[in-house]
Design a protein around this nucleic acid. Structure first.
Length: 764
DNA sequence: ACCGTATTCAGCGCG
DNA sequence: TGAATACGGT
């Protein structure tokens, strides 16, 4: 059977167009992933060597599922040799092969965000800078932005504009911290996530033979979720594809929801000018949702200015109207939604996994959990602490990391005194200081220890040395021993098994079980015969080793831990986490101004438009029915706040709503002023339920701001003007009501903290 | 080294 | 509010 016959005309055209640059603009639910998988399958069917196909996805999970699908499609196991994975995992594989070019050992460690944060924290404290001003998060964010834009420390520190920005932000040392941070990474033979991209780019940029090699290798390049790629990813693709330009990108600008961490929609918008003979296909038929949902989603997204025009349509039934639930409080919202799910489930004989609750922020999950539990409805929260982020697992992995890479400082500092061996904090700090001074790694400092006199007590030096000897004794066994045996031996030699076994508290027992589970995973791994296609050439009977395991683990996350529980549960997750998924019944909750759209997004149109795209993504997850809910009052950060319904509700045609009787105590004359008429009604007229939310300002008595200033509109990040101090930028705000204070950086006089009720600030 | 209390700070999060 | 960290006393 010809697999192409399973596609519609546009999909098929995109799949069969195999040469030259192709962009597939695929609306939500239009079979985007389908095009990608069928295209790879088609290529293989045409006789293309799977080893020469590079397919990049957004998550490991997507890669795994796609690969599985392709193998069944082509019914040929060779399909597993396609280079399919995330940008990070594919580039990590290549970088391990070519590491020596860039001065790294092939066993370099990949630092996760915790490692990066800890390292940055030490760098900042060692520089004796104020960690309140130089928060690791801020500095790392700056560095990440720099790396994404190919800005190395050297470039950064000679770029007047960047330096000026840091100066204005009151953090002139940021560039210096970048250099120090990067040096520490190199010293530890480590790369952070952004380095995997940046170094891949360097490899292709600085070594023409490498560029040639990988251009020759990857004859066909496919990219999923192109709207969520950033500049360095774009630049790498541009280089790899430069030879024959057989590059096919698939994406939907309307679903770009990761601009906040550097993804840029420009990659899609510029595709045609980057590749002059580019061919564009638009997939506009939605196979997922009802007409009602598609219409609602179109009505929302049309409010964005930055977009490529698409008209999504569907042949599906009209379907249910959109539900709208109004609650008095956040906990009532939880109860309303849980009850609605319960009723729906009972009335229509549905399974729990037909339902999902989507929210803007993780903090909202609690009310829904409680209500679902009361009704005995099984649920699962996605995106919580993943297995590999748990403390005990990270501790154990730190041992393995250190055995593999003795210079891995973050791993060393994490475990040198866990379990407790009497090596205290001060001694560790001195150790780190000495490593920094002598420009070597901590591990080398320890090894030279007895010969030198540090201000570390002799017994402690001895203990440090014993520790390092133990680690190294395992290092030499890495290549010869089976992953599982070695892993278990390290676990017991380190004392972790004993430590956790003795802890009989419920948490201790669960930690012990988690370690066992980790060891089981390693056991399964070492039993598998199949290796990465990368090492397929040396198929001898070498056991699978611990460092191979760790290479796979470094880039795994949440979604990669399969859940063993009953799969029939209601899913709770953030909208971001729901990207790419679909559910019959979707509840989008917390539809309130300042929550969704988020208060932080109200400063710029770009941010607001990203929120709107997020809402678009949420709506288009649904197959059968969407229900929106909001609460009039909500506890946020410990205080009760009054909310009004989200502007996004207004953007859906009022006629699409199924307004429950109990909410519509609406004056008759407003009843029929729906958007069905051409009348340019106010928001209140179009959406009568809003009437109940006549803004009630908290009474602030005498403290009401004088008319003519902008006091209660001021937000972090705004430029403001003060009668005496001139113009400045709001850095942070604290307090509530009349006691609201803002920290403002004034151009002329520097930082000041002002009580808003007195400051009479104007927004500029 | 360890524990209880004070303080701070709250967006979304791939790899 | 509550989790996560910092601090300060034993």
């Amino acid at each position: 059977m010809n697999i192409l016959e399973e596609l519609n005309n546009e999909q098929r055209a995109a799949v069969e167009h195999i040469e030259g640059p192709v962009m597939v603009l695929a609306g939500a639910g239009s079979g985007k992933t389908r095009v990608l998988t069928y295209k790879v399958a088609h290529l293989i069917n045409l006789g293309v060597d799977p080893f020469s196909i590079l397919a990049l996805t957004f998550t490991n999970k997507a890669a795994r599922e796609m690969k599985k699908r392709i193998i069944t499609l082509v019914d040929n196991h060779d399909a597993r040799n396609v280079w399919m994975g995330t940008f990070h995992s594919i580039f990590a594989r290549i970088l391990r092969i070519e590491a020596h070019r860039l001065g790294f050992p092939s066993h370099f460690t990949i630092y996760d965000t915790d490692d990066s944060r800890n390292l940055m924290k030490s760098v900042i404290t060692e520089q004796e800078l104020d960690t309140k001003i130089y928060t690791p998060a801020y500095v790392l964010n700056r560095i990440s932005q720099a790396k994404i834009n190919l800005v190395t420390p050297t470039v950064y520190n000679s770029d007047p504009q960047l330096l000026l920005q840091d100066k204005i932000a009151g953090r002139p040392k940021t560039g210096h911290l970048y250099s120090l941070y990067q040096n520490r990474l190199i010293k530890a033979s480590a790369m952070d996530f952004d380095d995997l991209l940046l170094n891949m780019h360097r490899l292709l940029e600085e070594y023409p033979d490498m560029l040639y090699k990988y251009q020759q290798k990857f004859l066909f390049i496919l990219v999923d979720e192109y709207q969520d790629t950033n500049y360095v990813q774009y630049a790498i693709l541009k280089k790899l594809a430069a030879n024959n330009e057989n590059i096919c990108v698939v994406g939907d600008d309307a679903q770009s929801i990761y601009a906040f961490r550097g993804a840029t929609i420009q990659n899609i918008l510029n595709f045609k000018s980057d590749y002059l003979d580019a061919f564009t296909y638009k997939l506009e038929q939605n196979y997922r949702s009802t007409k009602t949902i598609v219409k609602a989603a179109n009505g929302v997204i049309v409010n964005n200015k930055d977009q490529i025009f698409k008209e999504i349509w569907t042949n599906n039934e009209e379907g249910h109207l959109i539900g709208l639930l109004k609650a008095t409080t956040d906990s009532e919202e939880g109860a309303l939604v849980a009850n609605a799910i319960f009723e729906n489930k009972m009335n229509h004989q549905l399974r729990n996994d037909a339902f999902t609750i989507l929210y803007r922020t993780n903090a909202q999950s609690r009310a829904f959990e409680e209500s679902l539990r009361k009704l005995n409805i099984p649920y699962r929260i996605y995106g919580g602490l993943s297995f590999y982020k748990r403390k005990e697992i990270k501790d154990m992995l730190a041992y393995y990391r250190l055995v593999i890479n003795n210079r891995d400082e973050e791993a060393l500092l994490r475990i040198i005194n866990y379990p407790a061996r009497g090596i205290g904090k001060t001694s560790c700090e001195r150790l780190a200081l000495e490593a920094d001074r002598s420009k070597t790694s901590i591990c080398e400092v320890i090894e030279r220890m007895p010969d030198r006199l540090f201000d570390i007590p002799m017994p402690t030096q001895k203990k440090m040395n014993d520790f390092m000897v133990m680690i190294k004794s395992f290092s030499i066994q890495l290549k010869t021993r089976n992953a599982y045996e070695l892993a278990r031996e390290i676990a017991s030699a380190a004392g972790i098994l004993k430590e956790l076994h003795e802890d009989k508290s419920p948490e201790g027992i669960s930690r012990f079980e988690n370690i066992e589970e980790l060891l089981n995973a390693i056991h399964d791994f070492s039993e598998q015969q199949e290796r990465l296609s990368l090492t397929a050439e040396n198929l001898e009977n070498v056991p699978r080793t611990l460092d191979e395991f760790m290479q796979e683990v470094a880039l795994l996350t949440d979604a990669d831990t399969p859940d063993s529980e009953d799969p029939d549960h209601v899913s709770l997750m953030t909208i971001h986490a729901a990207k790419g998924l679909e559910f019959p019944y979707v509840y989008i909750v917390g539809m309130e101004e300042n929550l969704f759209p988020s208060i932080q997004s109200l400063n710029s149109r770009a941010d607001l438009e990203e929120e709107r795209r997020l809402f678009y993504v949420a709506l288009t997850r649904a197959m059968k029915k969407v229900t929106l809910s909001y609460a009039e009052n909500r506890y946020r950060w410990g205080t009760l706040t009054i909310s009004e319904p989200s502007r996004f509700i207004d953007e859906i045609d009022f006629a699409a709503f199924d307004i429950p009787k109990k909410v519509s105590f609406i004056p008759e004359e407003n009843r029929f002023m729906t958007s069905g008429s051409d009348m340019q009604g106010t928001r209140d007229q179009r959406h009568p339920f809003r009437k109940n939310f006549k803004r009630i300002l908290p009474s602030s008595g005498d403290d009401l701001p004088a008319p003519g200033d902008d006091t209660d509109l001021i937000q972090v990040g705004m430029n403001v003007e003060h009668a005496r101090f001139g113009t400045g930028k709001v850095i942070s705000m604290e307090g509530t009501g009349p006691n609201k204070k803002a920290t403002i950086y004034f151009q002329n006089i520097g930082q000041k903290q002002l009580l808003l009720k007195f400051a009479k600030l104007r927004i500029r």
